[in-house]
């Protein structure tokens, strides 16, 4: 990282801006705050940020709509701030390409950790489609469709491999049920989440040291799954 990452904080509540902006600045980020969806879109196009922290409850534009419009023109990571009351909006935003979410009231460390993970992807760049990929202690060889842990091969069915590969390409990122179903089974399967439950169960049995208490493939209740590459501990 040669320069400070620029974060665009979008929240109409002045108190949130006044608390969160200094926090982010103290960790070396450059922060710009706006209070409305239209301002967010304007700033995002004029001075493209490295990351957007977006509150879903905005006065003018729906947060989901802001998310969609930003995604149309940019791949900038978006972290959604949501409340329990707009669970549906949260999933919609993730489906539309938001990278992650934090539920209010959140702890500062939680937000910072999500921002770190999202930014790491930006600054390390996307992994190549071919070749090898290491996730935690697993090594995935895309060319030969092999997965090994400590040189010991784990035999996966084609569907299981596809699912693991999908997560491996989006490490530490929440993938919604819908996104996964669409990627693995096609658009017609989005209403049949039971496929996914079964497949995730099978995959966990093979890759998790303890499938009952998964460490890598974590559930995000009611939202989706996330492949964690490093445990999310408070620094």
């Amino acid at each position: 990282m040669t320069r400070a990452a620029r974060i665009l904080l979008v929240d109409d509540e002045a108190s949130i801006q006044r608390a969160v902006a200094p926090l982010l600045r103290s960790r070396g980020y450059e922060v710009e705050t706006v209070g409305s969806g239209s301002d967010a879109l304007r700033v995002a196009s004029e001075r493209p940020p490295d990351l957007v922290v977006l509150d879903l409850g905005l006065p003018d534009l729906d947060g989901v709509e802001v998310c969609r419009r930003i995604r149309k023109v940019s791949t900038v990571p978006i972290i959604v701030l949501s409340a329990r009351s707009n669970e549906v909006d949260k999933v919609a935003a993730l489906d539309l390409g938001a990278d992650d979410y934090v539920t209010k009231p959140f702890s500062p460390e939680e937000l910072l950790a999500r921002i770190r993970v999202a930014l790491r992807r930006v600054f390390t760049g996307d992994e190549p489609e071919v070749g090898r990929l290491s996730v935690a202690d697993l090594t995935i060889d895309f060319d030969r469709r092999r997965v090994t842990r400590a040189d010991e091969e784990i035999r996966l069915t084609p569907k299981e491999f596809e699912l693991l590969a999908l997560f491996a390409h989006n490490p530490d990122r929440v993938l919604t049920h819908r996104t996964i179903l669409k990627a693995i089974w096609g658009a017609n399967a989005v209403d049949n989440p039971e496929h996914l439950w079964v497949l995730v169960g099978q995959l966990r049995k093979k890759i998790e040291p303890d499938p009952i208490h998964p460490q890598y493939l974590l559930s995000e209740p009611w939202v989706g799954y996330r492949l964690v590459t490093e445990p999310l501990t408070t620094p």
């Binding site: 509540e13 108190s15 949130i16 006044r18 608390a19 969160v20 200094p22 926090l23 103290s26 409850g57 409340a83 329990r84 009351s85 209010k104 009231p105 959140f106 702890s107 500062p108 460390e109 937000l111």
Partner: peptide, 26 residues
Amino acid sequence: ASLAHDLRTPLTAIRVAASNLQGTWL
């Protein structure tokens, strides 16, 4: 719905600001 909306903002702000106050960087 009203409580969810009206509690979450002050609670979030207080939580973040209080943890900011613990920091030595201020």
